[in-house]
């Protein structure tokens, strides 16, 4: 276990470091003087220019520049935003919890609905199976930036059940009400994908010899299913969970934009449009770190649940 975990974490750290490096040199890949890139071409006071030069150590040799910048980042010093005229950290602080909340809600929905739909379709078969899988195939093709507006139009505007945009007045109940539609929008396509994957793998598991043997041996179907079929059938879902989470994290850019939610995703898009590199660098780093950490967690979970992987790693 230790060596497996160690290797996995090492790989994660390497990925993150590589990303910081790429994100940092991005500054020098852009056309023009780095200082112009950092000010997004806007007229700037000499004091701010000085501050930028210091923040990015523009007068130092390259590697020094990179490590000083990285050191700052590790201390939460992401520099100044050219577009918002403020500390990048000030921009990040309120937005991180919002986005975490959104992604968590969506993830729970995906797992709850995607898995159960897939299992029911696989076990029941027949018309339920056909209908739910056809629906899932269609839904899986609806991107978040389209489903968001469908949901707003139907459930907020036509039916008036839920608020359309924003996050409300901040009270827990109001926040929850505001979070429903964006979470669903973020979860829909991925949930449909999970449903299809679940169904396929449970189906495959049902057809395996040892399941037939267990049934013949007179073990009750309920037990066979919960012990053999679901346990093995759900493992493949875990192996796509990493990609799924990456999709969710990036998906917040679309959903927050559509629902006018002030989270990291919307911040990223706004900053990109204004070519505000410091902000984009910071958000990209946060997203990649989140992505890597979540992937490590998924791998550890997989390791615990799948004896085959465990014996291989040992």
């Amino acid at each position: 276990m230790k060596s497996f975990l160690g290797r996995r974490i090492l790989l994660g750290v390497v990925t993150i470091l590589a990303t910081t490096f790429l994100v940092h040199i991005a500054l020098y890949l852009a056309p023009g003087d780095p200082i112009d890139v950092l000010t997004a071409g806007k007229p700037t006071t000499p004091e701010r220019l000085e501050a930028l030069r210091a923040q990015y150590h523009l007068d130092d040799p390259f590697l020094t520049r990179y490590f000083s910048w990285l050191g700052g980042v590790l201390h939460g010093d992401f520099g100044q935003s050219a577009a918002f005229n403020t500390d990048v950290l000030t921009l990040l602080t309120p937005r991180v919890p919002t986005t975490i909340l959104l992604v968590s809600c969506a993830f729970i929905m995906i797992m709850a609905f995607g898995l159960s739909l897939g299992i029911v379709a696989a076990l029941r078969g027949g018309a339920i199976d056909t209908a739910s899988m056809a629906t899932a195939t269609l839904v899986a093709a609806i991107p978040a930036f389209v489903s968001s507006f469908l949901l707003i139009n139907v459930f907020a505007l036509r039916l008036g059940w839920l608020p359309a945009i924003g996050l409300g007045d901040g009270s827990p109940l109001d926040t929850a009400r505001h979070l429903v539609l964006p979470s669903v929008a973020l979860a829909l396509a991925a949930g449909a994908f999970v449903a299809r994957t679940t169904r396929a793998s449970v189906r495959a598991e049902l057809g395996r010899d040892h399941v037939a043997t267990a049934t013949v041996r007179g073990i009750p179907r309920r037990l066979v299913i919960s012990r053999h079929v679901l346990r093995n059938g759900l493992l493949p879902i875990l192996s796509i969970a990493g990609l799924l989470l990456a999709g969710l994290i990036v998906g917040t850019a679309f959903v927050e934009q559509a629902f006018a939610i002030e989270g990291l995703g919307k911040l990223l898009v706004t900053a990109a449009r204004q070519q505000d590199l410091a902000v984009v660098q910071a958000v990209t780093l946060i997203l990649v770190v989140a992505f890597v950490v979540l992937n490590i967690l998924v791998d550890i979970l997989y390791w615990y649940l799948d004896p085959r992987v465990r014996s291989e790693a040992a």
Binding site: T15, L29, V37, V250, A272, R273, L277, V288
Partner: peptide, 17 residues
């Protein structure tokens, strides 16, 4: 493993949308 959309956002920041 690196999401394409994120890369697109990064490049749009550098080279313009």
């Amino acid at each position: 493993a690196f999401p394409g959309i994120l890369l697109a956002i990064l490049l749009a920041t550098l080279f313009g949308a």
